[in-house]
């Protein structure tokens, strides 16, 4: 459905946003993971036809995205990282505007989407007065309004409260099927339950690709748990790769990542996706340092 073939995005001064990145994706949810500045947004902007690759090509259902962007745009829903609005338009007017740009002229569809994202009660309110979460929900609605075959959502859960995040994950999970949903985030839990495949990006390159089980298998034996006195944890933590910390009455319950046992008292546990991601990043950093 989507092929990214040796795509690069170079900027003036020789800097690269994305470097010779290749991947292919089938219908379903593709999670794009990576630290801030890894090139996720640039890759998504290229897929969403907002910017063009400087090398390589992106093909969606046989259509070259850079050569014939309009063909892709008709089937595309895009939620950028910083979703912007006209502050003095109402939520209905704003969504109706974007719907009409995408060829949707049904008032009922606009209202349906506002209901889907729980904004029907605020349809007549100026968007300028919306909270960050409400704006983000409006952004999600506009991405879905034309019933796209390709949905590109960049950090969609930023600004959402926990309930809204779950709601949004369910929406994405529900619409993915025959469609391709590309979801970029640095919050692993956002994609853990819904992504069929995960691409890990670092410094503009693809450093990991597979389904969650494959990533988990690669991290087998690399997750540990230990309970430490608070003072000892503070002393040791600089030398540890910590994926989770919980302070309890009996001490600091710390979840650690490492191929070797990181602390004498640490016991091995089943890795989760967060551990797998951290393990991958740690391994790459070690290789780069070497």
């Amino acid at each position: 459905m989507l092929q990214v073939e040796a795509v690069s995005k170079a900027y003036r001064g020789g800097k690269f946003g994305v470097r010779e990145l290749s991947l292919s994706a089938r219908p379903g949810v593709l999670g794009l993971l990576g630290p801030n500045g890894a090139g996720k947004t640039t890759l998504m902007q290229m897929i969403a036809t907002v910017t063009r690759p400087t090398a390589g090509r992106i093909v969606f259902d046989g259509v070259d995205v850079a050569r014939t962007p309009d063909l892709v745009r008709r089937r595309l829903g895009y939620l950028p990282q910083d979703f912007g609005v006209y502050d003095n338009l109402t939520a209905f007017e704003m969504l109706d505007y974007i719907a009409r740009l995408k060829g949707v002229r049904s008032r009922a569809r606009v209202l349906e989407l506002l209901e889907l994202v729980n904004l029907h009660g605020a349809a007549g309110r100026a968007v300028g007065g919306f909270s960050g979460g409400m704006r983000q929900r409006l952004g999600i609605a506009q991405a879905l309004v034309a019933d796209p075959d390709l949905l590109v959502v960049d950090e969609p859960t930023a600004g959402l409260d926990p309930e809204e995040r779950v709601r949004f994950r369910n929406v994405l999970s529900g619409i993915a099927g025959r469609r391709l949903v590309i979801l970029s985030t640095h919050i692993v839990s956002d994609i853990e339950s819904i992504a069929g495949e995960i691409a890990v990006v670092r410094e503009g390159r693809l450093v990991g690709f597979g389904n969650p089980q494959e990533l988990l298998r690669a991290a087998a034996g690399a997750a540990w748990e230990a309970v430490l006195p608070s003072a000892e944890y503070e002393r040791l933590r600089a030398g540890l790769t910590v994926s989770n910390v919980v302070r309890r009455a009996d001490g600091v319950h710390v979840r650690l990542v490492g191929r070797e046992r990181p602390l004498p008292g640490a016991s091995p546990v089943e890795p989760d996706l967060e551990d797998a991601y951290l393990h991958l990043m740690r391994s790459l950093a070690a290789v780069a340092a070497a």
Partner: peptide, 15 residues
């Protein structure tokens, strides 16, 4: 550009 509505426009079929 400043309101970032432009990004949505850029990804839409509007020519």
């Amino acid at each position: 550009l400043r309101s970032r509505v432009g990004t949505i426009v850029a990804a839409s079929p509007v020519t």
